[in-house]
Every structure is written in structure tokens, then in C-alpha cells.
Write a protein that binds this DNA or RNA. Structure first.
Lengths: 332, 332
DNA sequence: TTGTACGCGTTATCAC
DNA sequence: GTGATAACGCGTACAA
């Protein structure tokens, strides 16, 4: 059954070159015990027949696939494609392919996704998906898949697990508390669908010491468009506000809605974003936001997993602190 | 050698359930000839032992991997992550995993990337990478990998190849020619590094009938930042211009540079973009650009490849026409 | 240096 | 309905 493919196998190469399988295999894997002459002959026939090894068979025989599984909730966010980009670049250097396991914010099929990760026999996995439950993580660990976790705080100390903590709270803490003390109107925290635990944790940390009268909560969708129109409506009645958004494109939605309703940013409406990307810079006024070089996070993650695979990972924990860049969308 | 893994195999499941391999395999693959009782017993032991099939071995035996290879020049563009997102969503529905093959605008290792695609034994491939040479495409076809090509125009009519043409020229043609007739200053086409053949083809089509005195060319990097600063400098001397950009974030760079140098958009400086994404909407003024729903393109591509794999693809060619959305960054 | 033979985990074709 | 057994393509001890 299956799809028809007439691939040249190592066996045919051997026959054509007048040697045995083993010798061809040795040539492929650059092993030393081969006469230059036979090596040349084998390489010539490989080129002539257009032979390419079958990675499945190799993986089955060696128990290595040179494949890294990447678990993310979505590819369609700028900070995530930045991250992915860093992983891919570094993975390429070390000869690793990347297979995507996207959970799409769906708790339903997350287990299926993890199951596929396990069956796919990747050499290791990198998880940037704070919507995963710890039971999912445990599954990965139980199957002894070397793992790098990227996210908030971690208290995991497994043999084959490295962690990268992204800390946004520190950068925001000062701004928010100064804001509380200096003014009278409330801080509004935007809650979007799909936002994950990290944003929630950040917000909890920020409002922990605050009186409830100082802040409130606005639920928005995860879409620029919908949020924009929601706030066009909002600003028909409300003429002021200080908004903390999970992502900067939502902050742009608010800022643009305010401007388009004739309000001034930041004089009337102030906006800032937790996760800052290129949108913060492209927007006019520019958006105050916390920045973290996600490309670098991705690079580091991929580097960590390669070291982990060689049992050479010394520092199993990495911390990244976001920096808050005060821009034109806030008064200070 | 290789990484240590102690995975449960089908053999151990068989032993524990008191049946043979064959029966376990039948249960896994939902085949009918199994007594409900034994089926239950096998499933119970599978759950108890935490058995997960080895996709490598399955792939080797069936010659199918449920993996689709995706060849792109980069993940770090919004229109590409849109595309990818569509592919992934639909792939998920059909049970396909996606493995990324990113060429990173590097002609050097593109051959290596294609080689990896071949060795990885994906069931099919989707290519959105107009920096690939036709020799690379031929390689994929020669290895009989079912293929969907996304890009400009195609004249490929292979058995196992579907194509999706993205047409931007039609949408731009009118705007550009009207612009030529109505005004006296030149149109400047931005050439960025990494832009690929498509943009070049579009530009060629646009300027084909034009006198050279009507347009010129400005070389920019592929980065928002660098382009922004380049044009901040540019606008110290030049106070006017009509700029056609390959991507909208570069258009934003010009628009923002103009605004920040005290010029007016679109009164003094007009900007439009070929490929339009969310940046066109977020930017103020909004950017006139050609839009194409890349998420849908990705969905269609994935749907096409699944049909191709089932030999059910009737329409092997698809055309998408971009629409030009005139916005605030141009006068009309 | 080179070849033989077995194992990797699964599916599939036979028998029974 | 179920169980041996031969593929699938490759790596690798071991023998020669």
C-alpha cells in the first residue's frame, strides 16, 4: 500500500559500486575505514544514481532523527515567529530539522498533539506554550524526551530538562505602581482570549498589592480588528483611560481607535503593552512596551537543546528580563 | 549508540496482553478482525504501559509519514506566518504534521535543504519560495514527492504537482499607470535584499510599457529599522516622492520617516505596498496595499496536497488575485 | 579494509 | 480471529 515511490536504496548503490551495504554506509557516515579509491567509487555511484538516504530507516537504526519538535500555541504572532526564526537558524547550524506541533489554543487536542510529539521520535523538544498543563509536560518528560521549557517561572529540576524564564513583571512593576500613585483614574487590564497563563501571572503579580478600586478588567478578543471596533465604541462614552494590553497589536488597536475618535494619545488615553514587537515601533504614536529579544530566546533554546543532547548542558536555567521602553503612548 | 530511550514497543504490549504482534497492530490500526474482548484487553495494556507507536517504523513499513514538508525562505514575515498558519490548521484536520524547511535566502545551502526534504520522506511538500531555482523544483519532482507550488506564474504540468498563482500585477497595474499619467515626479521602486523573483516579475510587468524617465529604483535593506533611518536621511534633501514597496512594513518605514521629518503623507510623500498585511492597517496613515488572504492560500495549499495524495485533485491550478486597497498613504 | 548477519519497530501476507 | 514471518532501509558488531 502507500504512496508509490521508487527510491534508490543503499542496496542498489552497493550493487552498482561492487561493494557491500556496509561499505556504502561507511561512506555515507564519513567513517575512516574506507580506501580512498572505493570511497570515490561509491560516491560516484551515489551521485550517478541520485541516492539519498532514508531518514526514517536511519532514525530507526540509530535512534536519532536530527529532528527537534517545537510546541507553540500559534505561529501567527510576531513574537512567536521571531522565536521560531531564532530556533531555526541555530538548528540549521547544528543540522537539526524542526517539526511544528501547534496546539492552536485548543485544550481539546493538546493531548493529541503531545502524543504526536512522542510518536514522532524527535531527538528533543522545545516548548513555548503556557497553555500546556503540567500533565502534558510530565508526559513529555516521562517519555524521556530532552526538553527545553520557555515561559514564566519554573520549578522543574529534571535530568533532561532545561528552562528559560521570561520575566516581564520586573519591567512593568515600576511603571504600574508609579502610575497608581500619580493619578486618579483606573488602570484597565485587557484580557484577551488565548492569552495563556503567563499574562495572567504577570497581572496577578502587578495587582497583588493594589486595592481593587485602582484597576478593572476589559475582555477583548485576540483580534486587532475586533478590538479596534470594540474601542471605537468604547470611546464614544469614555474619553479617558490607561490600558495595559497583553500584546502590542492590541495596544495599537486601542491607540488607533482613540485617535480615530478624536482623542489624544497619550494626553487622554494612555496605552502600554506587555509583549512588545515591531508593531510598537511602527505605530504612531509609538507604543510603550516591554521588550525581549525573542529571536535570541529562540537561539538560546535551540543551543540549549543541542547541548542537552550531547549531555553538555551546564547551565540548565536561563533568565531573560524584559526591559520597559517608555514611548509616546504613555505620559512617562 | 544514540540517545537513551526506553520506549515500550509493540512486542511488549503483545507479550503483556497475551497476544501476538499482529493483533496489537490490528488494534492500533482499527482493523475489524479482532474480537471485542481481545481488543479491549489490548487497549487496556496499551494504556497501562503507555505505549505509543514509533512513527519512524510505521513510516518505514507503510511508506507514509503523515508529514508534509514546507519550504519557505523565512518564517519571520507576517504574510508567511499567515500562510503557515493556514497550512497548519488544515493539516491538523487531515492528520498531517508539518516539517519546516527554511532556506533563509541562502542560495548556498538551498540544495542541502532540498536534500533534507528528500531524505526526510515527507508525504508531500508545499513550496512558497520564489528564490528556489527550477533545478531545485526539478529535484523534488524527480524524487516523486507530491508538490504544491505557490508563487507567481507557472508552466509546470507534472502529474503530481499542483500550483497556486498569486497575481499582484493586475491590482497594481491600474494604480501605477494612472499615477504615471497624472503627475510629473517619478515613481520609485524599492528593491530590497531578499525580495525574490516575484517582486521583480511584478515590477518588470509594471514598467514594461513605461518610459524609463518615469521611474527609478532605490535599494534598501530588508529591515524596517534600516530603511527607516535611510529615509530619514533621504528626506533631508528630498521633499517629495511616490514609493512602491515590496512589503508594507517597509512602506511604514518610509511613511514614518516622512512624518518624522515634518513631511505630509500623502500630500508630499505617497507610499504603497505590494504585499499588504496587518501593518497596513495598524499604521497611521493607513498604507495603500495589495491584499491577498495568505491564510486562505495556505489552507487551499494544504487541502490541495491532501487531495493530491489521495489522487483526487481535479483542479491542479489555482489563481488568487490580490485586490488593491486604496488607503490614506496615497492620494487616490 | 571489507563483507556478513542481525536488529531497529512496525505493517502486511500468508497460513492456521 | 489469530499467529508466524517476511519485508521496509539502514547501522553496526563481528568475522574474515
Amino acid at each position: 500500500m502507500g504512496i508509490y515511490k521508487e527510491r534508490v536504496t543503499i542496496y542498489e548503490v552497493a550493487k552498482n559500486a561492487g561493494v557491500s551495504l556496509a561499505t556504502v554506509s561507511r561512506v555515507i557516515n564519513n567513517q575512516s575505514n574506507v580506501t580512498p579509491e572505493t570511497k570515490r567509487r561509491v560516491e560516484e555511484t551515489i551521485a550517478r544514481l541520485g541516492y539519498k538516504p532514508n531518514a526514517l530507516a536511519q532514525g530507526l537504526a540509530t535512534n536519532r532523527t536530527t529532528n527537534i519538535g517545537i510546541v507553540i500555541p500559534d505561529v501567527n504572532y510576531v513574537h512567536i515567529s521571531n522565536l521560531l526564526s531564532g530556533m531555526i537558524d541555530i538548528g540549521k547550524i547544528y543540522g537539526y530539522q524542526t517539526t511544528l506541533f501547534v496546539t492552536k489554543h485548543s485544550k481539546q487536542d493538546t493531548e493529541d498533539v503531545i502524543a504526536k510529539l512522542v510518536t514522532s521520535h524527535v531527538d528533543g523538544a522545545i516548548v513555548f506554550d503556557d497553555e500546556l498543563l503540567s500533565s502534558h509536560i510530565d508526559t513529555i518528560i516521562n517519555y524521556k524526551i530532552p526538553l527545553i521549557l520557555i515561559g514564566g517561572k519554573f520549578d522543574i529540576f529534571e535530568e533532561k530538562v532545561g528552562t528559560i524564564s521570561l520575566n516581564y513583571t520586573g519591567a512593568l512593576k515600576n511603571v504600574i505602581t508609579r502610575r497608581i500613585e500619580s493619578d486618579d483614574y483606573k488602570i484597565s487590564f485587557l484580557h484577551s482570549t488565548n492569552e495563556g497563563k503567563m499574562i495572567q501571572t504577570i497581572e496577578s503579580a502587578l495587582v497583588k498589592d493594589l486595592d481593587e478600586s485602582h484597576f478593572d478588567t476589559i475582555v477583548v478578543s485576540d483580534s486587532y480588528h475586533e478590538t479596534y471596533y470594540q474601542f471605537v465604541d468604547y470611546f464614544k462614552k469614555n474619553k479617558k483611560g490607561f490600558f495595559v494590553c497583553p500584546r502590542d497589536s492590541l495596544a495599537c488597536a486601542i491607540s488607533n481607535a482613540a485617535l480615530d475618535k478624536g482623542l489624544r494619545v497619550p494626553e487622554d488615553v494612555e496605552v502600554l503593552s506587555v509583549i512588545g514587537t515591531k508593531y510598537s515601533l511602527v505605530s504612531r504614536p509609538t507604543i510603550s512596551s516591554c521588550e525581549l529579544d525573542m529571536y535570541e530566546v529562540g537561539s538560546i533554546a535551540m543551543r540549549m537543546i543541542t547541548k542537552l543532547l550531547k549531555e553538555e548542558l551546564k547551565e540548565k536555567t536561563y533568565n531573560f528580563d524584559a526591559v520597559f521602553n517608555s514611548r509616546a503612548s504613555t505620559k512617562e
